[in-house]
Design a protein around this nucleic acid. Structure first.
Length: 151
DNA sequence: GCCAACGTTGGC
DNA sequence: GCCAACGTTGGC
């Protein structure tokens, strides 16, 4: 089993929206490296849901990969802001998995707290200039982050 | 709202 | 293939 982190702007789609929906297709990612990570996700992988551009920036909860990546339908939808004229049904460019709600943390784990952890200094999320919206997390990082919840 | 850092586009 | 210009991300 692998561990991941995905970013979302809570004004657009928050952990509460995922809780309400139960599961959702993680559509709209339009970055090749992030897409490749999305295609790597396997059913059962655990995904941290991270709130960016928010009053409280940090990790808000957990989801699981419910269905592995399939073509992102919004790339074919001319009315969608995610429409991509270079994509076709025969040659889709963008893919998304379906994520299933696991839990919302009682308190958001703030980005500032993650930065304070010596053991997390190598996390991709914390690297200067990192803007990727889909990132792998090591098992060790996953464990350390969950431990922060207990404090 | 500011701005650093990054990815993409397009002229050459 | 280079690289300047532009648009986007995202923390503060």
């Amino acid at each position: 089993m692998e561990f991941w982190l995905v970013k979302t702007e809570p004004d657009v789609y928050s952990i509460d929206d995922l809780k309400k929906d139960g599961s959702t297709e993680w559509h709209g990612v339009r970055n090749y490296q992030a897409r490749n990570y999305l295609k790597t996700m396997k059913k059962g992988d655990v995904v941290f849901i991270y709130h960016s551009n928010a009053d409280e920036v940090g990790i808000a909860g957990q989801a699981a990969v419910h269905m592995e990546a399939r073509p992102d339908r919004t790339q074919f939808d001319k009315k969608s802001e995610y429409f991509d004229s270079k994509a076709s049904n025969e040659k889709p460019i963008w893919f998304c998995p379906k994520l299933k709600f696991i839990r919302k943390f009682s308190k958001i784990i703030p980005l500032s707290l993650l930065r304070q952890q010596k053991a997390l200094q190598q996390m991709k999320l914390l690297q200067k200039g990192s803007r990727l919206s889909v990132l792998p997390i090591s098992a060790e990082e996953h464990r350390i982050i969950l431990n922060l919840l207990a404090n």
